[in-house]
Nucleic acid binder design. Structure first.
Length: 598
RNA sequence: GGAGGCGUGGUGUAGCGGUUAACAUGCUGCCCUGUCAAGGCAGAGACCGCGGGUUCGAAUCCCGUCGCUUCCGCCA
């Protein structure tokens, strides 16, 4: 080893020891006869001091050294003189008085600061020089957290009888779901492997194989457009259990998540245990199947009351079966007239973007005898107003926002308003993590374009046994044994109990417009496997990157991935994707056709 | 596929029709024995992403294009 200690471990009790350190020069301060370096490695910073009087040759060398040079130093650990202790450094009680210095490598001046956190750094620059970006404290912290979380999960599950089993990356394209990344086969001209969107089928086959408790930290691939929380390749904790019901899976994962948060993060857990919200309730209250419940502002359905008002938009909507919902926003109703008008304009614009035709409001006075402001107040007689206020639990100074439209539009507007207002009112503390389960999803969604039912999760999700009788008569009412784990407005895991009954599986295939023959063609290996004694089983797959993003308090998942891709799915450092040689194409029986940019 | 935002010395920003293109920081040199976002002095460094257009005159206005990003579509 070129070092005896790390740059993070020396303390007052090491004083007097001769030690060797090696690392990068984080910062240097040339004081003339004294030169100070903050030496950095993965474990921390240590102040080095080089004294012209006691080490003239070393001092001469030190004068040349610059930021990010790689150096090795030998020296004596000294307790810092009184008044010169730096309480902001973990090693601030000591410094190393350097006797020998070796420059292991020089460094060009980096294209951006390594030694300070610059928030608005150009993303393209960070990506091009990712290896420098990763030197920065923020990224280092995130990757260390990532390692700790994954290690904790591996141990947690291993301790509970799970085994990690690897599954192939070169697999078969699946007809449903996201667009596949395809890999051409050299030995089978014209045929392709697909990279897995998740090892869904394989983990179920491992249950058939009798492994009972499987997990894998595994890379998944989906060729869809990017978002802040979506990368073309991402990491899942994929897991599956046999002989369990949904509560078993949920309790295991809930226990694990709580343990992760408590043991390896500094986050504040808002709910313990996690609330379980039925899908329908989530939609009605929050307009979303992945609500952020760090804050309330839940929508209240006041269709009944609004239908008896004199406001024709509401009465005609209610008559047509469209809901009227209210969101109660604390304090904003106390704004001055011009502020209120401006605020309403801004919110209405936002709602129109979400599909609404308009946004009605009432500003509740702060004083006992104040007037309700807002143009729709006059359509609600006093009696009806009181009934309304009672229904929404009004407080002085509230702003009430009214949304009415087709149910789906109302959901979307409620979701948009909640997220926007929470941001604006500073209700989203990234220190807090608010997990919740969303359960009782409908098994199917009606696909109007294709005139058929689509599975809302995936086609192996088992219906509730008590809903089985409706499977053929009213498929839309059948609930699936599906459970999503959500946190701070993101879906962090989705899972279900799977169908292991052949007859049920056939009905599901038929409903989604696949005859058994067709299904056998696409999923033959699955159906056949299920004929050899498939145990009841179920599982879940938390997205590790999203989870880490939330645990690190980061705004996107690129910050917790060492080498992420840009929104255009490119790697700016290596320059992927790239051209390949004609010979490579020929071997793969691939011809480039159509327009290709130079 | 669509909509929005951003692009000015190495970095982060200001300037938004006429400026020697400003500021901070970094960089280079010199001074300095207790600094730790060190300090002081001096200096170098930008044709304002790229291409067209409008104008007497464009970093600034318009069109196109490229890159990054946010959102919609998409994501069983």
């Amino acid at each position: 080893m070129l070092k005896t200690h790390t740059c993070g471990e020396l303390r007052a009790e090491h004083a007097g020891q001769e030690i060797t350190l090696a690392g990068w020069v984080h910062r240097w301060r040339d004081q003339g006869g004294l030169v100070f370096f903050d030496l950095r490695d993965r474990w921390g910073l240590t102040q080095l001091v080089i004294n012209q009087e006691t080490a003239p040759d070393t001092h001469k060398k030190a004068k040349e050294v610059r930021n990010e040079w790689v150096i090795q130093v030998k020296g004596i650990v000294r307790q810092r003189p009184a008044g010169m202790v730096n309480p902001n450094m973990t090693t601030g009680a000591i410094e190393v008085e350097v006797t020998d210095l070796a420059v292991l490598n020089q460094a060009k001046t980096p294209p951006f600061y390594i030694n300070k956190d610059e928030e608005n750094l150009d993303e393209a620059l960070r990506m091009k020089y990712r290896y420098l970006d990763l030197r920065r404290e923020r990224m280092q912290k995130n990757l260390i957290l990532r390692h700790n979380v994954i290690r904790f999960i591996r141990n947690y599950l291993s301790d509970r009888g799970f085994m990690e089993i690897e599954t192939p990356v070169l697999f078969k394209t699946t007809p449903e779901g996201a667009r596949d990344y395809l890999v051409p086969s050299r030995v089978h001209p014209g045929k392709f492997y697909a990279l897995p969107q998740s090892p869904q089928q394989l983990k179920q086959l491992l249950m058939v194989a009798g492994y009972e408790r499987y997990f894998q930290i595994v890379r998944c691939f989906r060729d869809e457009d990017q978002r802040g929380d979506r990368q073309p390749e991402f990491t899942q904790l994929d897991m599956e259990m046999s002989f369990v019901g949904r509560h078993d899976v949920m309790e295991l994962i809930e226990g694990m998540m709580i343990a992760v948060v408590k043991n390896v993060t500094d986050r504040e857990l808002v709910f313990d245990p996690f609330p379980r919200i039925p899908y329908q309730e989530a939609m009605e209250k929050y307009g979303s199947d992945k609500p952020d419940i760090r804050y309330d502002m839940a929508a209240v359905d006041i269709s009944d009351i609004a239908g008896r008002s004199g406001f024709s938009v509401f009465t005609s909507n209610v008559a047509a079966g469209k809901p009227v919902k209210v969101i109660r926003v604390p304090n904003l109703g106390a704004e001055s007239g011009s502020q209120l008008k401006k605020l309403h304009q801004e919110l209405e614009e936002l709602c129109k973007g979400a599909g609404a035709k308009g946004l009605a409001y009432m500003a509740i006075p702060t004083e006992e005898n104040g007037e309700v402001r807002g143009p729709i107040g006059k359509f609600f007689p006093t009696e009806l107003k009181l009934e309304l206020f009672d229904a929404v639990g009004v407080q002085p100074g509230d702003l009430l926002l009214f949304v009415s439209d087709d149910r789906k539009v109302v959901y979307n507007v409620v979701d948009t308003l909640r997220r926007h207002l929470a941001e604006q009112l500073n209700l989203t503390d990234p220190k807090q993590v608010a997990f919740a389960w969303v359960v009782d999803f409908p098994l199917f969604e009606w696909n109007a374009d294709e005139n058929r039912w689509d599975p809302s999760h995936h086609l192996f999700t088992s219906p509730y046994p008590e809903d089985l009788h409706m499977l053929e008569s009213e498929p839309g009412k059948v609930r699936g044994q599906q459970y999503d784990l959500v946190c701070n407005g993101y879906e962090v895991a989705g899972g279900s109990i799977r169908i292991h009954d052949r007859a049920v599986q056939e009905i599901v295939f038929r409903l989604i417009g696949q005859d058994v023959e067709e299904a056998r063609h696409k999923f033959g290996h699955m159906l056949e496997a299920f004929e050899y004694g498939a145990p009841p089983h179920g599982g879940i797959a938390p997205g590790i990157d999203r989870l880490l993003m939330l645990l690190a308090g980061e705004p996107n998942i690129r910050e917790v991935i060492a080498f992420p891709k840009t929104q255009q799915a490119a790697d700016l450092m290596a320059g992927a994707p790239s051209d390949v040689t004609q010979q490579q194409l020929d071997e793969l029986h691939i011809a480039i056709v159509g327009e290709v940019e130079a």
